[in-house]
Amino acid sequence: MGESGKDRVRRWRPVALSSPQAPSVEELLRQVGRGDQAAFASLFDAVIGKVLGLASRVLRNPQLAEEVAQEVMVQVWRTAARFDAERGSGLAWVLTLTHRRAVDRVRAEQALTDRTERVAAMDAQVPHDQVAEAVSARLDREQVRRCLGRLTDLQREAVTLAYYEGYTYRQVAERLDAPLPTIKSRMRDGLIRMRDCLGVTMGERA
């Protein structure tokens, strides 16, 4: 401590932050892919809130959402070895399976007509126990909202009607009274703009 301040200056170096907490979803998926049932229980606990949340949002029906969540989690167990971290994050993989199944179920039930009025009842925010979760979830949510806000109105409507309501692009086109090719390209342009805003990149380009 005898030296002068300037001589003692040390430069910060960039470093990757390792998670201070539980193993990542990616790591759990790798273990589940090798048949590890304890890892599957941990994975279940890590993702079930989001899986149920997304299924409930699309299906607007707690009973159906629960069924879909169970199907998705068993599908995750069955096909975990297929997960490839080069092609995306573990949570995104699970949520992609969830969305696909929820949408398939919506269309199978042909329930599109009577779901709208139930929005209010299901949308109530649930308080989180964990402050940490609340803060990082809030970070994620605000980033998504900010990026959605940067889309054109038509892009945003096309993307959100498809994702949150489970509409096909044909149904979106009818609902918005816009030509099919327009809606198709707005969905793509909108997602590309979201991708750039969120900074989503695949492994080799990160």
Partner: peptide
């Protein structure tokens, strides 16, 4: 797909 999955961040978790 990765981008679309992020849309789930704006859905409340089912606690």
């Amino acid at each position: 797909r990765e981008t679309a999955a992020r849309l789930a961040d704006d859905v409340p978790d089912n606690a």
